[in-house]
Nucleic acid binder design. Structure first.
Length: 486
DNA sequence: AAAAAAC
């Protein structure tokens, strides 16, 4: 069942693609290349000062950006048409405005592009602005790729929406908008999101003027039908967690409709599909939607992260799972950094939280049944470190980035909505919530039924990743493992 | 039966 992948490192024969007027580089490129070099020189000194401040780390280049890197050979790249793309060694090699470069170096503290950034950014930012399907490991710097791409394709003098980013959850919208605003700090580019409405206090009634819009489908669709969001000037459309956004039983209908609407208004709109996971089915579907797209893929066997230690915990029953939390996890909380406990249903999130609360174990919980303002508050407290343990449904399984999370507990092993099949992608995304920012992480999979064990066995073989087993009532063993890995 | 969201 292995998908055969074309490995094309060199350019393919010409396909008759001619550059035209609309294919000119974005503002800030070309005419200002000297200015770019100037600011790069100015910034060099700033960067060196920063380097001196963190002397204990010998290799800063990747750690400082909080990125995970993978060997070149594990990534398959396929370029379309006659375009040749040179990997960007430095951000200065890319057509970025001085203001954006400053944002990268000064505000974000980045030093050089990560692998995925070095290979995809030239593909994205070089005319004729082809579509891109890009897969890269959790924490490898995908957000920077598409945020930078959106910002660099906006013309600051045009006061209309020009870049759109669609995400599966409210939390991801908030997170991506925050990254975008930081990166845009030295530009005049405006931005908003579907989650920003609460701050504005009330329902939106005036058309959106902001140049970048980040959002979830429901409200975005509402804005479009009410003509509050004009699509005419949108030049770039990004799907974060793209395989999820194109899933048949989920967001596919809304996503495809939006793509079609946009292409009708502007046939040249650039489509970017980013995710850490694309199974064969989603890969095919993505390619059928973005036919001329450049592609970057990672084999699934290379996807499971070695920086995250994974253990199966065989429990006699569901009660024993709770005892693991109470007797082993919570008592060691302070040393652990932060913990996310994933459960399958909203009800499980609610009841487990209630039980832990009743017995004096301090934690919070989040799921789609909570009010948006409650969700915002719970997430903010967790980000602040006020709360150490968070119980969550899969609302946070993808993309949620809190650097202090070292431990992920799969209280319920991830299964598909049929209630039986292993949810391979969900597993990978869940455990990827730990070990952020170049830190280590651990994941415990609590199993109590034969089905649980079957599911974990299949997940383990799918990713070709052996998972060791821990005894559920042996605290010393847990401690030993935690001390070793964290 | 997770997730987005709505007048």
């Amino acid at each position: 069942m292995q998908a055969s992948q074309e490995d094309v490192s060199a350019a393919k024969p010409a396909d008759g693609d001619v550059q035209n007027d609309e294919d000119r580089p974005p503002p800030g490129f070309g005419e200002s290349s000297d200015a770019v070099k100037d600011i790069a020189r100015q910034l060099e000194s700033t960067v060196k000062v920063n380097e001196g401040e963190t002397v204990d780390e010998p290799d800063l280049s990747l750690k400082s950006a909080g990125l995970r890197e993978q060997p070149e050979a594990e990534i398959t790249t396929k370029t379309e048409g006659d375009s040749i793309y040179a990997a960007a060694q430095k951000f200065e090699d890319l057509p970025l405005s001085p203001e954006l470069l400053k944002g990268l170096y000064v505000e974000m503290g980045f030093k050089q592009p990560s692998k995925i950034q070095a290979s995809t950014l030239p593909m994205i930012l070089t005319p004729p602005y082809r579509d891109l399907i890009a897969q890269a490991h959790n924490g490898s710097g995908k957000t920077t790729c598409f945020v930078l791409s959106m910002l660099s394709r906006v013309d600051p003098s045009v006061p209309f929406p020009q870049a759109l980013c669609i995400c599966p959850t409210r939390e991801l919208v908030v997170q991506n908008l925050n990254v975008l605003r930081r990166m845009a700090k030295f530009t005049t580019i405006s931005s908003t999101s579907t989650a920003t409405e609460l701050e504005d206090g009330g329902i939106r009634r005036t058309p959106i003027k902001e140049q970048v819009v980040v959002g979830t489908h429901g409200k975005l669709k509402n804005w479009v039908t009410k003509r509050l969001l004009a699509l005419e000037n949108v030049a770039i459309l990004v799907f974060d967690e793209a395989d999820e956004m194109l899933k048949a039983d989920a967001f596919a209908d809304d996503s495809v409709r939006l793509i079609n609407q946009l292409r009708k208004k502007n046939p040249k709109v650039q489509l970017l599909l980013f995710s850490a996971t694309f199974n064969d089915e989603m890969k095919r579907f993505a390619m059928s939607i973005a036919r001329q797209a450049n592609q970057v893929f990672v084999a699934k066997e290379k996807l499971s992260l070695d920086v995250i230690a994974q253990y199966n915990v065989r429990c006699p029953d569901r009660t024993a799972k709770t005892r693991v939390l109470k007797e082993i996890i919570f008592p060691n909380c302070d040393r652990l950094g932060q913990t996310i406990i994933f459960v399958r249903t909203r009800e499980a999130a609610r009841t487990l939280h209630a039980e832990m609360d009743r017995d004096g174990y301090k934690c919070t919980s989040i799921s789609g049944e909570k009010a948006p303002e409650d969700r915002d508050r719970v997430v903010q407290e967790f980000r602040d470190g006020t709360t150490k343990v968070l119980i969550s449904t899969d609302v946070l399984s993808r993309g949620f980035d809190v650097s202090q999370v070292t431990l992920v507990i799969n209280y319920d092993v991830p299964i598909e909505r049929d209630g039986r099949s292993p949810a391979y992608e969900t597993y990978l995304h869940r455990i990827g919530r730990s070990g952020r920012f170049g830190r280590k992480g651990a994941a415990f999979n609590l199993m109590s039924t034969a089905q649980d064990m079957e599911v974990m066995a299949r997940i383990s073989s799918y990713f070709n990743k052996p998972i060791a087993e821990l005894k559920w009532d042996d605290e010393d063993q847990f401690i030993e493992v935690l001390n070793k890995t964290l």
